[in-house]
Simulated assay, not measured.
Amino acid sequence: MSLRESITAQIIAAIEAGTPPWRQGWSSPEQPRNAKTGQAYRGINFLILQSLCQDQYTDPRWLTFKQAESMNVKIKRGSKGCRIVKMVEVDRNRAEKLQDGEVLAEEKGKALVMKSYVVFNAEQIEGLPALPPPTKNRVEPVAVLDAVIEGMKGTGLTVQYGGGQPAYAPLTDTVRMPLPERFNSTEQFSATFLHELAHSSGHKSRLNRLNLYARFGSEEYGREELRAEMASAFLGPQLGLPMSSSMMESHASYVASWLSVLKQDKNEIFRAAADAQKIADYINQFAVGIQPSVAQQMVSDPSHDMQPVGLGPRP
Rank of each mutant, 00 (worst) to 15 (best):
Y221S: 09
K86A: 14
A273N: 04
M248Y: 12
K153D: 05
A169H: 11
S246D: 13
F65Q: 00
K66M: 15
I269S: 11
A191N: 04
R215C: 08
L179I: 05
P20T: 05
D173T: 15
Y282G: 10
M71S: 03
L210W: 05
G289E: 02
I7M: 05
A35W: 00
Y117L: 02
E102H: 10
Q39L: 08
Q54E: 01
L235Q: 04
M177S: 02
K204P: 06
E89C: 08
P178E: 10
D265K: 02
A214W: 09
S218C: 13
M1Q: 08
K36M: 12
H304G: 00
P302I: 15
P21Q: 00
S6A: 08
L49E: 00
D100R: 14
G43V: 03
P180I: 06
I149W: 06
W26Q: 00
S245R: 10
V299C: 15
Q165S: 14
R209N: 14
L52I: 01
A130P: 02
N34R: 13
A191P: 01
Q307P: 07
V148K: 01
L262T: 07
A147C: 13
G43W: 01
P178Q: 03
P134L: 12
Y117H: 09
Y41W: 02
K97W: 12
Y254A: 00
V299N: 15
I11G: 05
W258Q: 02
A214I: 09
A274D: 07
M87K: 10
P302R: 12
V288F: 09
M71R: 00
P60M: 01
W26K: 04
T186S: 08
Q54L: 03
V113P: 03
F193E: 03
I15Y: 06
F65V: 05
L212G: 08
A231Y: 05
A287P: 07
S70M: 11
M71T: 00
A17D: 09
F120N: 03
A147D: 14
A198Q: 08
E249A: 13
V118R: 14
